[in-house]
Simulated assay, not measured.
Amino acid sequence: MIAIIDYGVGNLRSVEKAFGFIGAEAVVSSDSELILGADAVVLPGVGAFADAMDSLERFDMINTVKTAIDRGKPFLGICLGMQLLFEYSQEGGERVRGLGVFKGSIRQLPLDMGLKVPHMGWNSIKTAEDCAVFGNLSPKPYVYFVHSYYLTAEDRSIVAATARYGIEFDVAVCKDKVCATQFHPEKSGETGLQILKNWVASI
């Protein structure tokens, strides 16, 4: 069973529906005992970084997330759920602390690129050859994004995919049992479903 963390922030039902579509049992929960007892954990998220951190604290999920990762439980972060795994975000012009699972920062996409911000829609990504989560995909798969801030990971060895939208930035990380994506696999059609299938197969 896959536990999708409900902390009041996130596109929970579409994630749950996507797992159901590929035949994986998933449940939305804010019960720490259930989450830590699950076979795998998903941290989704949309919205502002600071608000999400406040919600994690309010739902008493910060320790739950860190414990799940420390125990080596298969873990998937999606969109803001990926960003929260890093040290801090510059969203709102401030340095807002994240969970600090990985070293790196979240920064605003430049507003002078001649491109619309937020970055919303389909974009190709360049994936690492050694990441099983991206197996059985086309050479330059297209996935769906909705974000105004991007990741710069300090440890380049964990970067599993990058994308270009005016600038090149990190859009997926994988290390040990933790994987996370800036894009939304649950909204990325057949490509996204294949990524979720690959992740479930790795559990």
Rank of each mutant, 00 (worst) to 15 (best):
residue 2 I to G: 08
residue 3 A to C: 08
residue 5 I to Y: 07
residue 11 N to M: 05
residue 16 E to V: 01
residue 19 F to E: 06
residue 20 G to E: 11
residue 20 G to M: 08
residue 20 G to D: 12
residue 25 E to S: 15
residue 28 V to I: 15
residue 31 D to Q: 03
residue 36 L to W: 08
residue 38 A to I: 01
residue 39 D to V: 12
residue 40 A to E: 05
residue 44 P to G: 03
residue 44 P to K: 05
residue 45 G to R: 06
residue 48 A to R: 03
residue 50 A to T: 09
residue 51 D to T: 14
residue 54 D to A: 14
residue 54 D to P: 00
residue 56 L to V: 05
residue 56 L to D: 09
residue 58 R to M: 12
residue 65 V to Y: 06
residue 67 T to L: 09
residue 71 R to I: 00
residue 71 R to V: 01
residue 75 F to T: 09
residue 76 L to G: 06
residue 77 G to I: 12
residue 78 I to D: 10
residue 81 G to L: 05
residue 84 L to A: 12
residue 85 L to M: 13
residue 89 S to A: 12
residue 94 E to N: 11
residue 94 E to V: 14
residue 96 V to T: 15
residue 99 L to T: 00
residue 100 G to Q: 03
residue 102 F to L: 07
residue 103 K to D: 12
residue 104 G to R: 01
residue 104 G to V: 07
residue 108 Q to G: 13
residue 109 L to D: 03
residue 109 L to F: 02
residue 115 L to G: 01
residue 124 S to N: 13
residue 132 A to N: 13
residue 133 V to E: 15
residue 138 S to G: 12
residue 140 K to L: 14
residue 145 F to V: 07
residue 145 F to G: 03
residue 148 S to E: 10
residue 150 Y to H: 13
residue 155 D to A: 03
residue 159 V to P: 08
residue 159 V to Q: 01
residue 159 V to M: 01
residue 161 A to Y: 03
residue 164 R to H: 15
residue 167 I to S: 09
residue 167 I to V: 15
residue 170 D to C: 10
residue 175 K to E: 10
residue 181 T to N: 07
residue 181 T to R: 00
residue 181 T to S: 11
residue 187 K to P: 00
residue 192 G to H: 01
residue 195 I to T: 06
residue 195 I to P: 01
residue 196 L to N: 05
residue 199 W to N: 09
residue 200 V to Y: 10
residue 201 A to E: 14
residue 203 I to N: 09
